[in-house]
Computed example of a mutant assay.
Amino acid sequence: MESSCSWASLNECMRLYHDTEWCRPSHDDRYLFEMLVLEGAQAGLSWSIVLNKREAYREAFNQFDISYCAQLSDSDLERIKTDSGIIKNMLKIRSVRSNASAVLAVQRAFGSFSNYLWSFVDHRPIISHWTDEREVPAESELSRKLSKDLKKRGFKFVGPVIVYSYLQAIGIVDDHKISCPFHTRNRSEKNR
Rank of each mutant, 00 (worst) to 15 (best):
Q107T: 10
A109W: 11
T184M: 11
K53V: 07
E135M: 14
L38D: 02
S112A: 13
Q168I: 09
G40W: 01
A43N: 09
V173G: 02
S128F: 14
D76K: 05
D174Q: 04
D132Q: 15
S143M: 11
G40F: 02
I162Q: 01
E139Y: 14
Q63N: 15
L117N: 03
P160K: 11
N186F: 07
K152A: 15
S95G: 10
L150P: 05
S101I: 06
W7G: 07
Q107L: 10
D28C: 11
E139Q: 15
S26P: 03
V121H: 08
R97Q: 08
C23A: 08
S114L: 08
M90Y: 15
V163L: 07
C180A: 06
A8H: 02
R124V: 15
V121C: 07
W130E: 12
I127S: 10
S84W: 11
F64M: 08
K145R: 14
P160F: 09
D19Q: 00
S48F: 06
V161M: 12
E59F: 06
G171Y: 07
L38R: 00
H18N: 02
Q42P: 03
S119Y: 13
S26F: 05
R185Q: 11
S95L: 12
V121T: 09
P25W: 03
S98T: 10
N186M: 09
G171S: 09
S67Y: 14
F120L: 08
R134V: 15
P125K: 10
S84E: 07
L77N: 07
N89I: 13
N89K: 10
S9W: 04
A8Q: 01
L10Y: 06
E141C: 10
R108V: 10
E59P: 02
S179L: 02
W47R: 04
F120K: 14
V106M: 12
L146Y: 06
Y17H: 02
S95D: 13
A100N: 04
